[in-house]
Design a protein around this nucleic acid. Structure first.
Lengths: 253, 253
DNA sequence: TGTACATCAGTGAACGCGCGTTCACTGATGTAC
DNA sequence: TGTACATCAGTGAACGCGCGTTCACTGATGTAC
């Protein structure tokens, strides 16, 4: 028995009618077709009329399901975030045993992110590319975004749990004076608290740098900037990501 | 005396007429107005009609100067590349004396890139953001792109010239077997040859990683991904860029 | 220096396009009694 | 179980918008003799 909220009266009814089921199906179908269009034409090319054409519907019929183009686009963006977060979490869960060598554990999520990006280039661009002008991503994306970040940082937390990051108050190699260290600490408060509580500051900074580098590598590759620069992006990606783990290790050693 | 090529007959005439001067001026003016539009509305929002409106011209008049929207956009993209390369080169030239501490020399170009990006967010997005669908950047951008990369890498070359990278055949810390090292070397052939000839492979890889990280930091900041993550992007940027120099030093030590 | 002609800049109207969104409507499905 | 009514899905026509581009044209600038 499903609870169904009638949008117009606000009343609750206890049964799901056949109409409800059809409606849910068509909603999914619209999202699926729209997703194909998004993947093919990008966000700016997303056209309600084109989607309706593919579904053999009148354009106006779509307004029964989404109150406008922006609402549909928001739903697609959210779905992209969730798809990426799902893939990253799946990769992170497989390294739970932790009896594998560190490198493989650390590589898992970045490799999953890259694989997802190569399979969904337009969606990656939607998340990490230039923001669509005059359009703001829905707040709800913060949830899958946090899941993604958490998956990325999991090996660091595991290393910490295993006691490999001994001293929480260690000095930063590149920052000698207390004032500069304090400034960095203040700048990174939100990440430190939500993702890596009790981790040494240098580890937090290095994790953020690794995050930046991985996303940068994927974006540069995807957006065509390795042309005439790097012949085999995957080799470079793997090597560099591994070297980031080395830095993470060193900075807390 | 200017040489002027008559586009229709192919003949050369020796004098620049008043018409030629007016034409050059208006061409610049169109580019300037179009640049403002590009900075305000992004590439997709670039409209010939809107530009003509701002110039108090008929839309069709623009076709005397640019044969279509795509040609104008190409010119703007090229101008953006050149502006960024100019700023980076200017920053690089100021560190020519080299008697300043390494950190400052290394920071100069990245800081200039970030400053340019903050001043020209849409142009940055045009260069490093998602590619405009159905549109390919002109080949001519490769020239300023190479200038930018060369400026970025200048401190590394200077360090090399000063003899700080001793052994060209040093082992890679994270890659032990020869096969993996060879694969990386093969993957990075173009960069190594054009930007850092005779540098140790690890230095080439680290420089590329630094390039990726700097661009990643700027893009993530500009595209709004530090929201709820990093409170003071400039502190993080400076610290991280400095730490990249540390890595570059270490990997060749 | 003056005249006939060629070249070019810019105009204004028009074409055709695809778009998001609205609206009155028909017919089917669900609900209350 | 049957009937009257409310709700909802989907239609098809229409509105208004801004766009890139074309084209015949007018008038000014430059060129050749």
């Amino acid at each position: 028995v499903f609870a169904k909220k009638n949008e117009h009266t606000g009343a609750m009814s206890a049964s799901r009618t056949a109409r409800d089921r059809v409606r849910d199906e068509l909603t999914k179908e619209i999202l699926a077709v729209a997703g194909v269009h998004l993947a093919r034409d990008g966000a700016d090319g997303l056209s309600l009329r084109a989607i309706a054409r593919d579904l053999d519907m009148a354009p106006s019929a779509l307004y029964r399901y989404f109150s406008g183009r922006d609402v549909l686009l928001s739903a697609l963006i959210l779905a992209a975030y969730e798809s990426l977060a799902d893939q990253a979490e799946a990769a992170a869960e497989q390294l739970a045993p932790l009896d594998q060598p560190d490198g493989a554990a650390w590589l898992a999520v970045p490799l999953a992110m890259r694989a997802w990006a190569l399979a969904h280039p337009h969606e990656w661009a939607l998340i990490f590319g230039s923001p669509v002008p005059g359009y703001e991503a829905p707040q709800a994306t913060l949830v899958p975004y946090a899941r993604l970040a958490r998956a990325f940082v999991l090996p660091v937390r595991q290393a910490q749990a295993a006691g490999r990051f001994a001293s929480p108050s260690m000095a930063l190699p590149a920052l000698e004076t207390g004032a500069e260290t304090d400034a960095l600490r203040a700048a990174l408060v939100p990440v430190a608290e939500s993702l890596l509580p009790d981790a040494p500051l240098a580890v937090v900074a290095d994790a953020l740098r690794a995050w930046t580098t991985v996303i940068g590598m994927i974006s540069l590759e995807l957006f065509g900037h390795w042309r005439n620069t790097i012949l085999e992006p995957d080799v470079f990606f793997t090597y560099t990501t591994l070297s980031l783990a080395g830095t993470l290790g060193r900075s807390a050693a």
